[in-house]
């Protein structure tokens, strides 16, 4: 693995225990790709989807702070000027041309933010699931998608969000035509539940592209 020495530009909380880490230099990548991040290359490394756009001046990832984790407690304490290491971006969770639904939970929103900021939002609908109202990171940016941006909140209610789990929304909502693709990003549980639900509703598994967290 090739490691690039990077400088932290900004590290900020965007929701309770969810951080946005921005660093440079910008390594060439395509929206949907990911990087390994490490404090020291020989120590713990983890994969994160890039949340920044292809033309942004720096790279951004978002992460949940896991108090018992080996890396995120260290990442959460970084400040501007700190050194981290990034692998060369890789992966192929790409938004191909054509209409699609983007479906995410939690920090699984990252690749879709990257796609939107890279100008790939045309013909796309974004469905973001979260437990709480504060779970919808970057909602101000996604509001540019108008009614093609849906937030599904399972634990709280508000007039601006759908009350219920993302899978409930998908069960109740008419699905679009057979030419649509579905891109899923989130926990294994969400990806599998959603994929099964879509298949049970007649979507071909060949139209479903999944990104997993591990």
């Amino acid at each position: 693995m090739i490691w690039h020495t990077c400088k932290v530009e900004c590290n900020r909380l965007i929701a309770p225990e969810v951080f946005e880490l921005t660093f440079s230099p910008l390594l060439p990548f395509k929206a949907g790709q990911m990087v390994h991040i490490a404090i020291e290359p020989k120590n713990t490394k983890r994969l994160y989807s890039l949340a920044s756009g292809e033309n942004d001046p720096a790279m951004t990832v978002i992460f949940d702070l896991r108090q018992s984790g080996q890396l995120t407690p260290l990442l959460s304490r970084l400040s501007a000027g700190s050194t981290i290491y990034s692998s060369t971006p890789h992966g192929s969770f790409f938004a191909k041309p054509g209409p699609a639904w983007w479906i995410a939970t939690g920090t699984g929103i990252a690749p879709f933010r990257s796609m939107l900021r890279s100008g790939l939002g045309e013909d796309k609908k974004l469905i973001h699931g979260g437990r709480f109202l504060e779970s919808f990171y970057y909602s101000e940016e996604f509001k540019s998608m108008g009614n093609q941006y849906v937030r599904c909140c399972s634990q709280q209610q508000h007039e601006s969000v759908y009350a219920g789990r993302l899978t409930k929304y998908l069960q109740e909502t008419p699905l679009p035509g057979k030419d649509y693709s579905y891109y899923l990003c989130g926990s294994a549980e969400m990806v599998v539940d959603t994929r099964d639900l879509l298949i049970s509703r007649g979507v071909s598994f060949e139209k479903i592209v999944s990104e997993i967290y591990f």
């Binding site: 926990s187 294994a188 967290y213 591990f214």
Partner: peptide
Amino acid sequence: VGCKMGCLFCMTGKQGF
């Protein structure tokens, strides 16, 4: 316990991780 990989053909993946 469970699995994160979500392979389409696997029962273990259906329980998440």
